[in-house]
Design a protein around this nucleic acid. Structure first.
Lengths: 217, 217
DNA sequence: TGCATATGTATACCCGGTGCAAAAATCTCC
DNA sequence: GGAGATTTTTGCACCGGGTATACATATGCA
């Protein structure tokens, strides 16, 4: 990973960090939309053109931190112990994430993380970008299901869509509550039972949900 | 709806159509990204400023046609007959859409529709825009579930996320196959069984899926 | 040390989208 | 069928994200 390669490589890493940190600091201070990339470039002491050599879009200045999560679900499914279903592996992984207060679960109230989450939620362009990550995660997960569970193509696709949708809904719910000021430790117990509820829904289906009847015909 | 109001209103409708049609024609001919909004405005014989008075963004020139579908799932759930579950209502609605070759199911090979679908799939910005519609549909559906089926907030949210995800995956699958040249009538039977499979998965859960075991530990 | 190559920069540009103020069209009421 | 209020359209200048080009600088390597 972080091989101590040549000077060139080290400088690139430093520039990457410098740009990213300048960007986050400015965005948190004044809001994503109210800071131009030119300002970020100036703050990081590089040219605008160089900035775009490191980050393809303005949004990526923020969300590149989540890039790893794009393949996380697929990796969890691939690495699951023999005899474990993909669903179980993903549930346990999510529950473990809650325990570890992994930001990907939304249950992290570190001031920096919380501010970042709030900013993302408040910025449609960033939400859209995160949702594109989800789409990518969905594809990777579908492939993992096909390859490690012999799931037929369509089933894999449908299952992946459901899994990613539920995962995201659960995380978003946590993020929103913490954004309103709740503490992570305070929220933890509910977050766990919510997650268990979500995964139970995935496992057992919506069929056995008690269903009221609409007012009239 | 289309009240025959004053001249002003009629002119507005005509301008709206003129812009939209000029846009679609140009986009289909040369590709979405290779046509500027200035060109669309010129073709529709309005100023760029006026174009943006009718359509908030360039993408909306294309996807405004699907705007109704944003609330479709919610409406179906609200209008379901007494004694019918939301899931059943949505499944029947989707199957009916397949029968009617409703574009929203992806199963429509009218040349214009097919070309439009292909263009959307090939244009990331348009795909992203459609996915934003899905998010909106999800919120509307969750609300309908809460209000007409007494579903608790979190459950409604999770169920809506799953339902919209499966709906979209099914439609996308049809669109992709038709884009590759398959005829709608030829695809119909499979589309129906795929849809039934998808909704069965939603109803019964992923739990009873036969699951192979990964290669090793 | 010197050359090939990889990075960075300045400048000018394209395009989507907006603010503003003036001009044109439509409506209303007499 | 006008006069004046109101709505719509327009032209223009502008902002910000992103790119092309052509040149300058730094690094790697022999």
């Amino acid at each position: 990973m972080s091989d101590v390669t040549g000077l060139r490589e080290r400088k690139k890493q430093r520039t990457h960090r410098a740009i990213s940190e300048a960007a986050i600091a400015l965005f948190l201070e004044r809001g994503f939309t109210r800071v131009s990339v030119a300002e970020v470039a100036a703050a990081a002491e590089v040219s605008k053109r160089t900035l775009f050599a490191y980050f393809p879009t303005k949004e990526d200045l923020v969300v590149h931190r989540f890039a790893d999560h794009e393949t996380e679900a697929a990796r969890v499914v691939r690495a699951r112990p023999a005899g474990t279903t993909p669903l179980t592996a993903l549930r346990e992984h999510f529950l473990d994430g809650l325990r570890r207060r992994d930001p990907v679960t939304g249950l992290n109230d570190d001031p920096g993380i919380r501010a970042l989450f709030r900013m993302i939620l408040d910025t449609p362009a960033l939400v859209a970008r995160v949702e594109r990550f989800n789409t990518a995660a969905q594809h990777a997960l579908a492939q993992a299901l096909r390859e490690t569970a012999d799931t037929p193509a369509l089933t894999a696709r449908l299952a992946a869509a459901q899994l990613v949708a539920v995962h995201w809904a659960l995380a978003l719910d946590n993020v929103e509550r913490l954004a309103r000021g709740e503490a992570a430790d305070e929220r933890y117990a509910t977050a766990v039972s919510d997650a268990e509820h979500g995964f139970a829904l995935l496992e057992n289906g919506l069929g056995r949900l008690p269903t009221a009847t609409p007012a009239s015909g």
